[in-house]
Design a protein around this nucleic acid. Sequence first.
RNA 1: UGCCCGAUGGUGUAACGGUAGCACAGCAGACUCUGAAUCUGUUUGUCAUGGUUCAAAUCCAUGUCGGGCAACCA
Length: 602
Amino acid sequence: MSNLNANTPAPEPVVPSDFIRDLVAAHVAEGKYPKIHTRFPPEPNGYLHLGHAKSICLNFGIAREFGGACNLRLDDTNPTQEEAEYVEAIRTDVNWLIAGWADDQLGLKPKGKTPETVIAKGSPDFYLPAVTGTPSPAVEPFYASDYFDQIYAYAQQLIEKGRAFICDLSAADMEGYRGAPDRPGTESPFRHRTVAENLDLFARMKAGEFPDGARTLRAKIDMASPNLWLRDPILYRIKHAAHHHTGTRWCLYPMYDFAHCLSDYIEGITHSICTLEFEVHRPLYDWILESLALPRALPRQYEFAKLIPSHTIVSKRKLIQLVNDKVVTGWDDPRLPTLSGIRRRGVTAQALRAFAYHIGVTKYISLTDVSVYEHAIRDDLNQRALRRLAVLRPIRVVLTNYPAGQTEELEAVNHPADESAGKRNLPFSRELYIEREDFAEVPPPKFFRLKPGGEVRLKYAYIIRCDEVIKDAAGNVTELRCTADLESKSGGATAGRKIKGTIHWVSAAHAIDAEVRLYDRLFTEAEPELDGRDYKTVLNPHSLEVITAKCEPSLAGAAPEERYQFERLAFFTLDKDSAPGKPVFNRTITLKDTWAKQAGKP
RNA sequence: UGCCCGAUGGUGUAACGGUAGCACAGCAGACUCUGAAUCUGUUUGUCAUGGUUCAAAUCCAUGUCGGGCAACCA
């Protein structure tokens, strides 16, 4: 195990290998492109989640491993779906996830810059190169909507080539003309308009002469194609709607298929990596690009299977529902698989990257068990978290042979495997708190914590024996009266005694209170929506429990960027709801608990 | 019932015609002033049937199963 704390990040895993990277490596080997250029193109219609993390790690990872760049692009061609709020959230999440790892590969553009126009082979060509490695307020992400002028010009070219036409069919009519997967469609009655008429109509569509849905621009391909996406697909539709980035300048917006390949081309993307559902779109992607006789190298699309994590939901629509229905407190609720939620929960970007590395990239649609995710988190946190003592569910212990009023400072290490993490002192006194679970009046087999007449070691302190159990009228244990072996402190005469159990504790007089939020999986089932089941029926009622814990005093100075392990319990991080003197800790993930598993067995 | 894609232990992946490996999970043990970590050992797998070949997870054929595709969404 390597030694590190929050300030000395763990080494990144070795470079992964998968079918896409193999392809890119081959392209590099044959010198197919001067530079590898990928892109991460989210639509700003929601928050980024675990699934996006996989894509980000893939795209930026490739850029990183092959000396290329990866553009951040907002794929914003549908004004009715997208909002500026999401743009900011996306930028934050991407920056967080790649920080210290692929910052130098992040492709942005000078603020406000749109593609440069060049005349190549007698027709306009557009290019918008990325700037990398210069984070500053003067740069911003790419926006597909910044290319509306260029995409419009490309559409005109397509019309001029006789490869696109204006269609007056309504959405309902078009459905009838489309045919079916096993039955060819029929050509639109407007398919044979003249170039001049198409150009004129297209210009008038742009000018706002027609209402929504009145006309569309369609590619002229093949209504009999077995690939539905090649049956004269719509390239442009009329939408009199304000756009988050272009305002009211347009009432005509390009469809994804038309805008995406051209955006890739304009930015000089070489490898356009997307998820499997776009596989059937690839012929259209290529058709558009090839129909335009473009002078520069064309981008190519590659598809991989998206991440499907178990015990959660990653569909944007469902995520919105969870937020709106107040099942969770917001987009950054630590139980959500959103990057903002994950971050607030205390998971580090590096853990997420390690996870992405471990799950691999294939074309096989699979369900990834959360345990892989959880392992990546534990592995990361175990290396960086500072150890602390805190008691979640306290029970009072009085050491009858320890002088009242006496306090001593005991030395404790901050990390058992990293000396450089330093040490701290723990105040010790006659009255303590220990974990309720660490005492059993009637101990189950193999219980080696505290029991009547039994001994246990207090971490960094003394070995104590339980002499007496005090109960209230209802029979609840309220206090344990114990005696300490005063020679058994670290370095003491009897410190070497073999005691099976070691438990954590805090001094009652010195402990500070902290709100602790115990998070757990949001769903009890691996596939919440299996067979159309309503996810509401499998919500985990214990996904959040809020308690007040007794913490060692040093935790009063907890830092938000730090990670802590409350020994023998779990990993925690300070929540943004903390106030001076009122710390709030989020439980990121519990430690593995072999005892709980064993104790739970019949 | 058209087209496209896929199938390797419980789960996720590697092997690119030449010993089926790794990780997670599980189980057993060692160690332990964290029942954590660490270390050791270990159970379980090439969808099926043919074919090509000295040799097939890998190439071919057929089948089976799973997924995707008929928004003026992305």
